[in-house]
Design a protein around this nucleic acid. Structure first.
Lengths: 232, 232
DNA sequence: ATCGTAGCTTAACAGTGTTAACCTCTCGTG
DNA sequence: CACGAGAGGTTAACACTGTTAAGCTACGAT
């Protein structure tokens, strides 16, 4: 139809833009090949000339999302160059804000079912890793200054991510107790995430460190981790 | 075919069992109406005589899953009737163990896309709420004894859930950094979750409480929460 | 003996992702 | 300039999906 917009070979660009818009405006379930094609005035199969399959299109969108999140993260870091705790808090806020504000982006980035991610090349998660690195550096900084208890920043960064991801995904799925105001929940989630890295004081009945050793006696998750050792 | 098993009108039971087995053995994507039907020797439409639609079948499975989780939770509570911190830890372990051991159950219970949950009657989440109640009671107990800092147990319970859910869902999606051993990550996630409720000590540059007021200056997530006020 | 209906069937619809075959038009080379 | 190659697009089709409409069969009650 009005094919003037995609005059050159940047149809790939048009596909991605349309996919993103469709995702944001119509929602996840409306993101189908035929619908994208119809929106840009091409046939569905034309998409396959630029993307191997729907997964590949998803991966491209995920990379874009990671880039956006990274931009938000860097801005948060730049805003608090001195205080690592404040910086950590700014990062947490940036993450939650990104997740709620760009909900559909977040969904395909972090909530897409593993089935879609099977063929995902682990290579491409480098962009995602940069975001974790910013968290790890902040934790390491705070640990060095004695303000945060994060002896293993890399693990700590994943914990921060994991904790915030839980909050965002439950919010997006509307699974949080209705009697709790969203703002309260968000504030509590961020506070708890940071709180978990603050040094503890001795108190009655509290071991200096949460118990040691293996978290489970029996091999509960062995079945799960038995099959494949790689992740991303 | 061999329809002797479903001699009576408990075909509903057979559908649920088959769906669960199929889910566990073949994975999420193989859980289709036709496949379930074929497995029990009925036609696909026969399922619609016992369930309104696929969502309703999912809901039934979710309720079963919630029941199982509740059983595991009650066992954890019974094992540590005295120490709330130990009890909280046992609950955390039970949750993670359930998530990893019954991965497919966990997926439809907590990771199914909101699209599937649109028509879900909020009423039915009462079973889910009981699990949160056990967490809340434990937090309240610990708070009363000065061992845990959880002034609002109901919020705290959701935070615990949220935190663990993040860990489990990232593990199930194989999204955790490959350089971190799963056992290490799991232990750190549980430890951090509990740690977040331990009283802090004064330290250089750390405010007594993580900052007050609204977590965001601009109305970042307003678009998200603007539309619908109900959740579940 | 007949009617109603519970319980199940087949046929069909509107979708989905994806592939194969074809068509057209431009561009580099003999 | 003529021509073959191939880039970039098309339609038709396959094997699926959830779901609905219509029809069949057999049994229990009147």
């Amino acid at each position: 139809m009005e094919r003037s917009r995609t005059s050159e070979a940047d149809l790939r660009r048009a596909i991605l833009d349309t996919a993103r818009h469709l995702l944001v405006r119509e929602g996840y379930k409306s993101l189908t090949m035929r619908r994208i094609a119809r929106a840009i005035g091409y046939s569905a199969t034309a998409i396959y000339l630029h993307f191997d399959n729907k997964d590949a299109l998803f991966h491209a969108l995920i990379e874009e999302g990671m880039e956006r999140l990274y931009a938000a993260f860097r801005e948060a870091v730049a805003r608090h160059p001195d205080d690592p705790v404040q910086r950590l808090q700014a990062l947490c806020r940036a993450y939650v804000a990104f997740g709620l504000d760009q909900a559909e982006y977040y969904e395909i980035m972090f909530m897409a079912h593993p089935e879609h991610m099977e063929r995902y090349p682990a290579e491409k998660y480098r962009r995602a890793r940069r975001n974790l690195d910013l968290l790890a550096e902040t934790l390491a900084d705070g640990h060095a200054r004695g303000m945060l208890d994060a002896p293993e920043p890399r693990v700590g960064a994943s914990i921060v991510w994991s904790s915030l991801h839980g909050a965002v995904s439950l919010l997006l799925a509307h699974r949080v107790d209705v009697r709790i105001a969203p703002e309260v929940f968000i504030h509590a989630a961020i506070a708890h995430t940071i709180h978990g890295f603050l040094p503890v004081r001795e108190a009655p009945g509290i071991p200096p460190d949460i118990p040691p050793a293996l978290p489970f006696a029996d091999g509960a998750w062995k079945r799960f981790f038995g099959g494949d050792g790689e992740a991303a």
